[in-house]
Design a protein around this nucleic acid. Structure first.
Lengths: 172, 172
DNA sequence: CTTGGAATGTCAACAAAGCTGACATAAACT
DNA sequence: AGTTTATGTCAGCTTTGTTGACATTCCAAG
């Protein structure tokens, strides 16, 4: 895997440059989560719920891969089943998510968003997409390609697989 | 991958492409924090401490901008002073961080890493830089430029300012 | 000089969201 | 028949965030 030493040699990757990448990830992630966080906070004030980032993530990935199993969601999110279960329980009690017994393997629960769940998901993902769209626009198409390449290279191998699976599932 | 008609036709930013960007951020951030998390977990098992991501962040930014004030750190981290204080207290008690009364304004505390603190910081940032370096290498210099552009465009304005200030401080 | 506001520290109480360990059930696999 | 897998649940604990209240110290403006 000998990278051909291209024009601008990557030997010039100083610690300072890497440090800036690290801080860039930190600050950008802050922005990335800010809008949905704010929306949830508002919703919590008006309703009787108390949803946070954990609920957002669950709703996002269920909406993204309808019919996914609890096990798959656990792997994607990287939390314990107890932690996820607490979240799923409230989402199901509130009628945002429903679980159907698996067709082939009846131990599994296939998770789906209800209409209400899908509505929340849309509301949350909309603002997040808006920010992403603005950032993509500002940086330009060439930068976007690079952005995605670096992100993918930064993932753990298993996560890269999950990431690819989501992408494939969406494109069929 | 269905490349959109290149050039500047960013009108072709489909929701699917944005969704992938969102998930990319999620999975990449998981990888981004994985190595330091693991190190801290190991340290905690062997020593008497119990440091987590919050301690890592504090140590990182103090090491990055020695002499920074509590107020500035609060703005960078985006948490309450009570939350930060709990972290700083343990770090100071354990002799990893020290606070000196400010020179111009004596209400301020200027924060510094001790030698032990700097050692921990190096240990944590090393693995994180390694991952960043590997990702940068794999993606190539052109991609790195794009990556940084998108990250910066994704930040909130105030965070972009803090980000720039750190960069400037390091380059004088 | 006094007074108001800013920067900091601290106490108490609480919540979100992670964790471990133990145990239960049903279904699938061998 | 016995083991493993997928899921759910109870109980308890930790980290890290939150509010609210209050004290101290110090700068700066009236």
């Amino acid at each position: 895997m000998s990278e051909p030493i291209s024009g601008e040699s990557l030997l010039f990757l100083t610690d300072e440059q890497l440090q800036q990448g690290i801080e860039g990830m930190f600050f950008a992630y802050r922005g990335f989560t800010a809008d949905p966080d704010r929306i949830l906070e508002d919703l919590n004030r008006h309703r009787d719920q108390n949803y946070g980032r954990a609920h957002h993530r669950a709703v996002h990935f269920i909406g993204r891969a309808p019919g996914t199993t609890v096990k798959n969601l656990l792997e994607i999110l990287g939390v314990t089943k107890q932690s996820l279960n607490r979240v799923l329980r409230t989402l199901m009690a509130d009628g945002l998510v429903e679980g159907k017994v698996g067709g082939s393997d009846r131990r599994e629960r296939n998770l789906y968003l209800t209409e209400a769940g899908a509505a929340l998901e849309r509301q949350l993902s909309q603002v997040q997409r808006e920010r992403m769209r603005a950032a993509y626009r500002a940086a330009g198409p060439e930068a976007v390609r690079g952005f995605r390449q670096v992100l993918e290279a930064m993932m753990d191998k298993e996560m890269r697989k999950k990431y690819g699976a989501l992408r494939d599932k969406a494109n069929d």
